[in-house]
Computed example of a mutant assay.
Amino acid sequence: MGERQLTSGERAGDGSGGGPGERVLAGSVPLTRDFFDRPGHEVAPDLLGRVITYGQVAVRLTEVEAYGVPGQDPASHTFRGRTPRNAVMFGPPGHLYVYFTYGMHFCANLVCLPEGVGSGVLLRAGEVVSGAETAEARRTAGAGRTVTRRDLARGPARLAVSLGFTREHNGLDACPPGPIRVLEGDPATPGSIHSGPRTGVSAGQETPWRFWIDGDRTVSPYRPHVPRRR
């Protein structure tokens, strides 16, 4: 599948927001902090169709998953309160929260609600719309195999790898003038947005806060949590 040109001014640059070598595509209006200063389950569906860009890679979001506040959402990293690991989620909205999971993968979230609350949206899947060659090189490094364009960012770990996110990106600002941008893009129409249970969590998975663009080929497959045998 070829690259789709960004719509209405979306921009994929070198991560600095301008300068030589930046590829200017159509319509690059970045979302401001007010966009993220809302409950995660309101921000999540509104992120579908938006474009997150860092460095040379831009990803149109097609699947996301919201997580609630301390004491209310048992699936959230903030459920039991603030820790060194989840501290970024208690910071200002619009920052990137990156965590390491299963001893092998990084996943990226966008922080929601005012500072001190503790909520976010997991970026589950998307379509690489710029910088596909860079994303593919990251995905295949040392793997000795190829990856289809459909699968470059089809899943939270794949999305993080494609964008180059690691632990050092935890806490970076995704609002101007930060190095990461979430662009206005082409928001999904309400009729195209579906919701359902969250995936891969052992508690609170029945909460229908996973949102995706119906029929989009880059949405990841749903996998309910399966308890481990003792």
Rank of each mutant, 00 (worst) to 15 (best):
1 M>G: 02
4 R>H: 08
5 Q>S: 11
6 L>A: 03
7 T>F: 09
10 E>M: 00
12 A>Q: 09
13 G>W: 13
13 G>F: 03
15 G>F: 02
15 G>M: 03
16 S>V: 10
16 S>Y: 09
17 G>W: 14
18 G>C: 11
18 G>P: 04
20 P>A: 13
21 G>T: 07
22 E>Q: 13
23 R>I: 13
24 V>F: 07
24 V>M: 05
27 G>H: 05
28 S>T: 02
28 S>I: 11
35 F>D: 02
36 F>A: 08
41 H>E: 14
43 V>W: 09
45 P>C: 07
47 L>W: 05
50 R>W: 00
50 R>F: 03
51 V>E: 00
56 Q>M: 10
57 V>I: 07
59 V>G: 10
61 L>H: 10
64 V>N: 06
64 V>R: 09
65 E>Q: 10
71 G>C: 10
72 Q>H: 10
73 D>S: 05
73 D>A: 12
73 D>N: 13
76 S>I: 13
78 T>P: 13
78 T>A: 15
81 G>T: 00
82 R>M: 13
84 P>E: 14
84 P>Q: 11
85 R>L: 11
86 N>K: 14
86 N>D: 05
89 M>I: 03
91 G>C: 03
92 P>E: 12
92 P>F: 00
94 G>P: 05
94 G>K: 05
95 H>Q: 10
98 V>A: 06
99 Y>H: 06
101 T>P: 00
102 Y>K: 01
104 M>L: 15
106 F>M: 02
107 C>R: 10
107 C>K: 06
107 C>M: 14
107 C>G: 01
108 A>W: 03
109 N>E: 08
111 V>H: 09
112 C>Q: 04
112 C>A: 05
115 E>N: 12
118 G>A: 07
118 G>R: 03
118 G>K: 10
120 G>S: 15
122 L>R: 04
128 V>L: 12
132 A>L: 13
133 E>I: 04
138 R>V: 02
138 R>H: 02
138 R>Y: 04
139 R>D: 07
139 R>A: 05
144 G>L: 05
145 R>E: 14
148 T>G: 09
148 T>Y: 11
151 D>M: 03
152 L>R: 04
155 G>S: 06
155 G>M: 05
155 G>D: 01
156 P>R: 13
159 L>S: 08
160 A>H: 09
162 S>K: 01
163 L>Y: 00
165 F>K: 02
166 T>A: 02
168 E>M: 01
169 H>W: 13
173 D>P: 00
174 A>C: 15
174 A>W: 08
176 P>C: 12
176 P>Q: 03
176 P>F: 11
179 P>S: 15
180 I>Q: 06
189 T>W: 01
190 P>I: 04
194 H>A: 12
195 S>I: 00
196 G>N: 04
197 P>T: 12
198 R>C: 05
202 S>T: 06
202 S>H: 07
203 A>K: 14
205 Q>P: 01
210 R>I: 11
211 F>S: 01
211 F>M: 02
217 R>W: 11
217 R>Y: 02
220 S>T: 14
225 H>N: 11
226 V>A: 10
227 P>H: 09
227 P>V: 04
228 R>P: 12
228 R>H: 15
229 R>W: 15
